[in-house]
């Protein structure tokens, strides 16, 4: 089974997210970058399937040239091929992103002479959270898609996909080639080994320059939600604070 995983490079903020002066992006001056968590799990799932059942894993990202870092990371944890669709670094809207990704996927499939059996997306990107790029790509390619997947069991000509619902799972049997939106928790992503890191330096980066028209959604300004004003009551600096804590638990009625 050959699997394509589409990932997004996002900043990794800590206690606060700061916005640049023009309001158009997260101020990442002092931040590291990472792969959006759902996609990190999608990649791990693809690598596990390829290790078990054979086939190759390709990681593709649309983003600034610096996103090569996330592609190399993908190679260090087991991806066989890495493809970058470079942007100028500005945030692309979902329609534009989906159009460019579709073209890139069509080109890769043409070069391979066959479609990817599975294309995995994160259920939503960690930053802009548009909840739609995977679905748009699936429809442009004429393939079925299901989101919120937390379990994949590959079969012959189809996959069993488990979707998380309140208190359990829905089970789908999706014919391949197909597109799935993956959620964190489907697995525990591995850390790269030293050998993986070395191999990733040698992985060949393919670049696909693709132009696409902006869609109808435009970003005007990012801002932080109003903070809830809070004062913290310090109950103590050692275990004797337990008495006050249990008083509070009694007061609010959670202690019978």
């Amino acid at each position: 089974m050959n699997i394509l995983v589409c990932v997004k490079r996002v900043p990794a903020p800590g206690a606060k997210i700061n916005v640049t002066e023009d309001g158009l992006s997260v101020d990442s001056a002092h931040l590291g970058f990472t792969t959006s968590p759902h996609e990190e799990c999608a990649l791990e799932e693809a690598v596990q399937i390829s290790e078990r059942d054979g086939g190759e894993v390709t990681v593709l990202t649309l983003g600034p040239v610096e996103a090569e870092e996330q592609l190399r990371y993908g190679a260090s944890v087991g991806a066989h091929h890495i493809i970058l669709v470079p942007t100028d670094g500005s945030a692309w809207d979902p329609q534009r992103t989906a159009a460019a990704l579709t073209t890139a996927i069509e080109q890769a499939e043409q070069a391979n002479g066959q479609p990817f059996d599975l294309i995995l997306f994160g259920n939503e990107s960690a930053d802009s959270g548009g909840f739609q790029v995977g679905v748009r790509v699936a429809l442009k390619l004429g393939r079925p898609s299901v989101n919120a997947i937390k379990g994949i069991d590959p079969g012959d000509g189809s996959v069993i996909a488990r979707r998380e619902i309140d208190g359990g799972f829905e089970v789908y049997e999706v014919p391949t080639p197909a597109v799935l939106g993956i959620k964190e928790g489907i697995n525990l992503p591995r850390y790269p080994t030293m050998k993986g890191r070395l191999a990733s330096k040698k992985a060949t980066l393919e670049t696909a320059e693709i132009a696409a028209e902006p869609g109808g959604q435009a970003l005007i300004r990012l801002h932080r939600p109003p903070e809830q004003a809070s004062t913290t009551e310090i109950l103590g600096t050692d275990e004797t604070a337990a008495v006050r804590i249990v008083d509070i638990l009694e007061e609010i009625g959670v202690l019978a």
Partner: peptide, 24 residues
């Protein structure tokens, strides 16, 4: 950040405070 945003805080080792709550 968890402390400065919380309503109540105990500035101590959780391994001492948590068993003390249970005991209390």
């Amino acid at each position: 950040n968890m402390v400065t945003k919380a309503d109540y805080a105990v500035i101590a080792d959780l391994h001492k405070v948590v068993p003390a709550i249970t005991a209390e």
